[in-house]
Design a binder for these strands. Structure first.
Length: 215
DNA sequence: AAGAACAACAACCGCCGGTCG
DNA sequence: CCGACCGGCGGTTGTTGTTCT
């Protein structure tokens, strides 16, 4: 059996206080991001190492961009979600200063709702049957893609055809924001590319292959 | 003004894959 | 090879703030 990641008896939970934040910041400034498990003790924090890591990566890191998402960021999230599914860390990696948690929250609280309102299924980016087709409001139509045709039929089972991939790539390349999936290092966490069987995993695999090729 | 409902966001939980002894 | 450890990820929950009735 795996040991719990920390001693739950002596760890704080819930919102971080200013003092805790400061301790963590001070420690990481002085020693860098080392072994997360040992950081709480070394920094004098009664927190789980995972909690420290999350706090640092999502809120305390100096390069984090806070505040509302710009329209182009939102468009980009939608496009990348259509391509990659719920691979938030990959999506966040294309948005400098944004974290996976932030992107995920923004998707769930804003974009998802917005798409549903527009009659688009946020899971597969397809228009619902019987819903009046919006003309220029589909997030992908703005760049010229045909919504239902360029999307794979069902996120789960049908892999994108080559032409679909090319089409999506063309969409992305027209974006003003850097979408180059090669050598993705806006965030240090992108150095490792995962390959879980998620929606659009076939396409994601190709992205991963592209990364290899481009390296 | 008060309570209910909803929205937004921070944080936790459990699982997974990689690494190491 | 195997099991333990660790970091990372995505899903989910809990809390707080805002709007509505």
């Amino acid at each position: 059996m795996r040991k719990p990641c920390c001693d739950k008896e002596n760890t704080n939970k819930g919102a971080w206080s200013k003092q805790e934040d400061q301790k963590l910041i001070d420690y990481i400034r002085a020693h860098g991001e080392g072994c997360w498990r040992s950081i709480p003790k070394a920094a004098g924090l009664h927190r789980c190492g995972k909690s420290c890591r999350l706090r640092w990566l999502n809120y305390l890191r100096p390069d984090i961009k806070r505040g509302i998402f710009a329209q182009d960021e939102e468009d980009l999230i939608i496009k990348l979600h259509a391509l990659l599914g719920n691979r938030w860390s990959l999506i966040a990696g294309r948005l400098p200063g944004r974290t996976d948690n932030e992107v995920k929250n923004y998707w769930n609280s804003h974009i998802r709702r917005k798409l549903i309102k527009m009659g688009i299924d946020p899971n597969n980016h397809k228009l619902h049957h019987g819903f009046p087709r919006p003309h220029s409001h589909h997030p992908l139509s703005a760049t010229g893609a045909s919504s239902s045709e360029s999307m794979n039929k069902e996120h789960k089972v049908v892999p994108l055809s080559k032409s679909c991939v090319e089409e999506e790539t063309a969409i992305i390349s027209s974006s003003p924001v850097n979408l180059d999936l090669s050598i993705a290092l806006p965030s240090p966490r992108l150095a490792v590319v995962e390959d879980k069987p998620t929606p659009n995993s076939e396409f994601a695999k190709r992205c991963d292959m592209d990364i290899d090729l481009n390296c």
